[in-house]
């Protein structure tokens, strides 16, 4: 089976966000595989191990995403593709990324594409369904279980806490929700092997794409940090009195009850 994983390099969830010159300050920040994409990598490896085939991990970004791609290879993916847009795209959006991935995957005969359901930085959750639309294949988002037998797929989809059992056939794109699996840590031999696994680097030219073809359909005009919350009021006294005071405050001061 020909399996592709869409992977994004994101800020570590531990990072505080600061701005410099109106942009997110990346200096000194730690980067990780988007946590939802980690589920996607793990699931792809499990499907390959059960069904045979090959797992290729794709990332659109800059040279620096190589580190996260190597991590995916160390987990057990077979190949990686980095589509480096550093020189060609200044302000991309989800249309841009989906268009590039879609163009790359056209003609690749992907049986299964797995992505995270959302990236924890931009948080838009658009790229998966947009890629499926470009490739004219069906998709199922936020899945927590994936079973494949004889080309028939059965998934469980999380819908705001409800579980839908959905049947579809390959080719298919799915996006991973928390609970799909427990992503493995790369083993030491895995890390050694990953260094020798193929990592192909491409640019827009290699995909016969012009900058105009991938021009964003949205534009960010401002980024700002939320107003810092002032430290609140920690109540004191007997617990019973504190509780009465809290209810009073919620009613008369905060006016939320």
């Amino acid at each position: 089976m020909n399996i592709y994983v869409l992977l994004k390099r994101t800020f570590d969830t531990e990072e505080k966000i600061t701005l410099s010159n109106g942009k997110i300050n990346e200096d000194g920040a730690e980067f990780i595989i988007n946590p939802y994409d980690e589920y996607a990598v793990e699931e792809a490896i499990q499907v390959r191990d059960a069904q045979g085939g090959e797992v290729t991990v794709i990332s659109v970004g800059t040279e620096e995403a190589e580190k996260q791609l190597r991590t995916a290879l160390a987990m057990g993916a077979d190949k990686a593709v980095l589509i480096n847009i550093e020189d060609d795209v200044e302000n991309g959006d989800q249309f841009t990324t989906a268009k590039i991935i879609g163009e790359y995957l056209k003609g690749k005969k992907a049986d299964l594409i797995i992505a995270g359901n959302v990236a924890i930085d931009g948080g838009s959750g658009q790229v998966g369904p947009r890629v499926a639309e470009i490739l004219e294949i069906p998709y199922i988002t936020t899945i927590t279980k994936l079973d494949i037998a004889d080309g028939n797929v059965s998934v469980i989809r999380d819908v705001e806490g409800d579980s839908e059992t959905i049947e579809a056939s390959l080719p298919l794109l799915v996006t991973a929700q928390q609970g799909l699996n427990e992503p493995r840590y790369p083993s030491l031999p895995g890390i050694m092997k990953a260094k020798k696994k193929p990592l192909e680097e491409l640019e827009l030219d290699d995909l016969d794409l012009e900058e105009d073809d991938v021009e964003a359909k949205t534009k960010t005009i401002e980024i700002y940090l939320p107003a810092k919350k002032e430290a609140g009021k920690v109540l004191s006294g007997e617990i019973g009195d504190q509780v009465s005071e809290l209810v009073q405050l919620l009613r008369s001061e905060a006016k939320v009850i």
Binding site: F11, I17, L19, D121, K217, T220, E222, I223, Y224
Partner: peptide
Amino acid sequence: IYSGKAFEKKIV
């Protein structure tokens, strides 16, 4: 963005 650690203003 960043799950509410920051905000952005956008146009289509």
